[in-house]
């Protein structure tokens, strides 16, 4: 069993956490194969907001295990975790852009810190990402001077700059106009289509990512109430999912 976990791309076992009724996870387990993409969705207090912090071990006081490419993330040392995080990037809610750096510097930051690329190579890579995200006009601006959509584009470009294997995206489209972030969606689709790249998205609106993810998991009160493929998600009669997707107050979930 442990051997399987160590050999899998990402394996989460019995992830549990109990702080209060609103912050709970109860024995969440799942495996992710390389190339697969998952969307976690659910109500605000369902526990989905703990998924990304726990997988990346940004918060590590939970029960259970997380194995990523054979590494025990939870029990890794501070330095080992920093190395693991080069391959498992977490695009956090609010983006966390460094405010005293320009858009260009923000994107170049992980490359300058981690990679062995030369300055010219870094420059080339950053320019490539800036073009891809269509943020050329704001390249020398600081995060406070740019639009919300540009912040997402910058944060996304920064997250994928090192070409990680797994991307954890937490509410990436929160407070965003989807039309303004089409470049991100295109990039995310391209990313998800790659057989070597995986993404775990946590969102309140899973339908937006229906052509990106191939697996959908719904949580309610810290437990999995739905786990299915894209097709199953789109055609499900699961009462939790139906209630959630139809925004109905009537159903098994107490809102």
């Amino acid at each position: 069993m442990l051997g399987d976990m160590e050999n899998s791309f990402l394996s989460v076992r019995n992830m549990s956490y109990m702080l209060d009724i609103h912050s709970t996870l109860r024995g969440i387990s799942f495996d992710l194969k390389q190339g697969d993409n998952i969307v976690f969705f659910g109500l605000e207090n369902s526990g989905i907001d703990k998924i990304c912090p726990f997988i990346s071990c940004a918060i590590d006081d939970f029960d259970g295990d997380v194995f990523f490419k054979g590494h025990d993330v939870k029990n890794a040392s501070y330095f080992e975790r920093n190395i693991i995080r080069k391959d498992m990037v977490y695009l956090q809610r609010g983006y966390g852009l460094i405010t005293n750096m320009t858009v260009y510097e923000n994107i170049a930051l992980p490359l300058r810190y981690h990679s062995k690329m030369t300055s010219d190579e870094i420059d080339f890579r950053v320019n490539q990402l800036i073009d891809e995200m269509e943020i050329d006009l704001s390249r020398d601006m600081r995060p406070v001077d740019i639009y919300q959509s540009e912040r997402l584009k910058t944060a996304f470009a920064r997250a994928i700059a090192l070409n990680p294997d797994l991307l954890l995206a937490e509410h990436p489209l929160e407070a965003q106009c989807v039309l303004n972030v089409m470049s991100v969606m295109r990039s995310l689709k391209k990313w998800a289509d790659s057989p070597l790249k995986s993404v775990i998205i946590v969102a309140y609106n899973p339908a937006v990512f229906s052509d990106i993810a191939n697996r959908f998991i719904m949580l309610y009160r810290g437990e999995v109430v739905f786990d299915g493929t894209r097709e199953e998600f789109l055609s499900t009669t699961n009462e939790y999912v139906v209630q959630y997707m139809t925004f109905s107050p009537k159903g098994p979930m107490m809102v």
Binding site: S56, A58, R81, N82, I83, I84, R85, K86, V89, Y90, Q92, Y95, G96, L97, I98, L109, P110, Y113, H114, R158
Partner: peptide, 8 residues
Amino acid sequence: RSLELLGI
């Protein structure tokens, strides 16, 4: 936190 999450 975002720096930490970038492995910095």
